[in-house]
Design a protein around this nucleic acid. Structure first.
Lengths: 240, 240
DNA sequence: ATGCTAAGTTATCAACTGATAAATAAGGAG
DNA sequence: CTCCTTATTTATCAGTTGATAACTTAGCAT
């Protein structure tokens, strides 16, 4: 409950002490626009992740410690703010190094597929499969279909993750690379099952609010083991 | 999201057309209360599944072809209506025969675990893993944490499905039944992975709005195959 | 200092939403 | 047909929300 109106005595004391604020709260301070924008987006991620996209601008402003109309100085509408939130989450959170980790397995033969997958998903979980992300991801998916591009994002996941995993599986089993023989949908289905299972794991923790009954690393390792164990039979049916 | 003032003419036109029923429902027709309640709940499932729980009561009423205050004759508040929706979906949609299908494997030895799982999830998908259900399930999970139903429902899933699957796995591998040796959390984790993967499959179709690249039955069969293939190694680690 | 630019606030609007009370009318019972 | 129960509508309120305009003031440049 940080009240915006400053009390009479507080204000006068402040004026006497030159311009230096005694209050350690930076809330009253003015910020350069880019800094304020960053602060607003960060707070919006937290807020909308918690309450959903129908959360109101007044509560959000109060959390930041500013007045509600100030939001409209930086974002023409609430929708624009929400777009900024998703831009930050869905675009900026991809780490460049992941491209290499899931990339061509031949570049580092000593690094096998199981370890690659473990390393990738460990890191991916730390950056992406998180409370704010997974909740806002779901909110986005469930929102109006015309509004935002959940479709685009899933395509991004398929390009960057699913197809790369398939490529690794091909290489591990001595099969021709996707560049020579295109990936089939049934192959992708196998990788989607792994990815989906791991997302579901996060969802159970962050959305379903259930306690996981083992260490995340152990669960991850086990999931990858099951995936790799199930690959050969699935692969024979998928490729024939 | 845009809530800008509507022009005079625009508003008046809108309001005037309110009288004309878009829905060809016989105007003035009265229904007995129980029938009307059923109609409202059914429409509410459709409506809230489509637009989310923040959908308003006026639009819902218009879809049914009744006035908004009439909803309040049968449901004291919107929350009560939403509760009725979830009661219908989460409680009434459970088929009694499923208890037998996933029950004690000894009752019908000729019916192996793979087929039992296939039959169950085929049926379960037809009744539960559907558009309206999966979307409302997610809306519920994402809603206020204090809302009880999500947690209760997940417990129900664990009792009725997860633990039964584990029981079947135990029996198939000649291990003692849960009644003698209690299930471990790590065992449940394996079954959750199967269940989660299949839910994710539905979610991809109904929520993510993606096309599945194979026949549902084939995908289901493949998922169960992978699950059963991965069980032994996972089991050895889980039980040791 | 002085003044200008932009950050921030106050006040307020108009539409929307859940909910209530009073009026109306359908349709079965007698 | 008349009456009476109750399903249904009309009218309306009070609180909420996105958004705008006008005013205020911090802080840098000159």
């Amino acid at each position: 409950m940080s009240r915006r109106p400053v009390s009479e005595t507080e204000a006068s004391t402040e004026r006497r002490t030159k311009r230096t604020r005694i209050t350690p709260v930076p809330a009253g301070r003015r910020l350069p626009s880019d800094e304020r924008v960053g602060q607003i987006v960060a707070a919006a991620i937290d807020y909308f992740a918690e309450v959903g996209l129908e959360g109101n601008t007044r509560d959000l402003a109060q959390r930041i410690g500013i007045t509600q109309p100030l939001l409209y100085k930086y974002f023409p509408s609430k929708e624009d703010l929400v777009d900024a939130v998703y831009g930050e989450l869905f675009v900026n959170r991809w780490r460049a190094e992941w491209n290499h980790w899931l990339g061509d397995p031949a570049t580092d033969p000593g690094w096998n597929l199981a370890d690659r997958l473990f390393d990738f998903y460990s890191s991916y979980a730390a950056y992406v499969f998180r409370y704010d992300w997974s909740r806002l991801f779901m909110f986005n998916l469930l929102a109006d279909r015309d509004a935002k591009s959940a479709h685009d994002f899933m395509q991004l996941v398929q390009d960057r993750i699913i197809d790369k995993i398939c490529e690794g599986v091909r290489a591990t089993h001595g099969l021709p690379p996707p560049a020579h023989v295109p990936l089939t949908d049934r192959e992708r289905e196998i990788a989607w099952a792994l990815h989906g299972g791991l997302f579901y794991l996060t969802a159970r923790r962050d959305i379903y609010d259930l306690t996981l009954h083992a260490e995340p690393d152990d669960i991850l390792r086990a999931a990858i083991d099951r995936f790799l164990a199930g690959v050969p039979s699935a692969l024979s049916k998928a490729i024939g």
